[in-house]
C-alpha cells in the first residue's frame, strides 16, 4: 500500500514538474535555433578546397533524464507495443540541445560552417534507478573558420 502511494506521488510530481521543464526546454531550443541558423551544420565530408579556411574539431554534449511520469507511461506502452512518444521527445530534445552547444562552441571560435557532423547516443543509467533512462547525446563536427578571423 505504501509502495503504491509513493509511486502515485512520484508519478504526479513527474507529470507536473516534468511537463513544465520540458515545455520550457523546447521553447528555449526553438529560440536558440532561430539565432543559430546562420551557422549551418552539415553532414558533408568534403569541405571547400579553396585555401580560405582552417579547421578545428568542435563538440557539444548533454545528459538528459526522463521524468517519472513518462517512464511510467512508457512502461505501460511496452505492454501493447507501438510508438513511445515519451522517449521520442526526450531524444529529440537531447539531440537538438547537443547540436546547439556544438554550434555555440563553433561560434565562439568564429566559424562559418560545420562539416561532417556525427551524433553519438548512449545510455548511461546510473547506480541508482537502473530502470530510469539517462541518455547522453554527443554531437561533434569540424568547424571551418576563415583565416582572417584567427
Amino acid at each position: 500500500m505504501e509502495q503504491l502511494l509513493i509511486t502515485i506521488v512520484l508519478v504526479a510530481l513527474g507529470y507536473f514538474f516534468g511537463r513544465r521543464a520540458e515545455n520550457k526546454h523546447i521553447k528555449s531550443i526553438i529560440e536558440r535555433e532561430a539565432v543559430m541558423n546562420q551557422l549551418p551544420a552539415m553532414a558533408g565530408r568534403f569541405p571547400p578546397q579553396n585555401g580560405k579556411y582552417h579547421q578545428q574539431l568542435v563538440s557539444g554534449s548533454v545528459v538528459i533524464a526522463n521524468d517519472y511520469f513518462k517512464t511510467f507511461v512508457a512502461g505501460l506502452r511496452n505492454l501493447f507495443g507501438g510508438k513511445i512518444t515519451a522517449y521520442e521527445t526526450l531524444l529529440d530534445r537531447a539531440r537538438r540541445e547537443a547540436v546547439l552547444r556544438m554550434k555555440q562552441e563553433a561560434q565562439s571560435l568564429g566559424a562559418e560552417l560545420i562539416f561532417n557532423v556525427k551524433y553519438e547516443t548512449s545510455n548511461i543509467s546510473g547506480q541508482y534507478n537502473k530502470r530510469m533512462p539517462v541518455i547522453e547525446v554527443h554531437a561533434y563536427g569540424t568547424a571551418l573558420m576563415e583565416y582572417s578571423t584567427k
Binding site: 513527474g14 520540458e22 533524464a65 517519472y68 540541445e97 546510473g126 547506480q127 541508482y128 534507478n129 554527443h138
Partner: peptide, 29 residues
C-alpha cells in the same frame, strides 16, 4: 561521485538535464 549520483537520482524523478554528468563526460572526453 556517489553524492552526485544520489543528486542525479533525485533529479531523475522530475526529468531534465543532469549537469553533473554532462560535466563529467566532458572532462572524460
Amino acid at each position: 561521485h556517489a553524492g552526485k549520483d544520489i543528486m542525479a537520482g533525485i533529479k531523475n524523478m522530475f526529468g531534465g538535464e543532469l549537469k553533473a554528468y554532462t560535466e563529467l563526460l566532458h572532462e572524460s572526453r
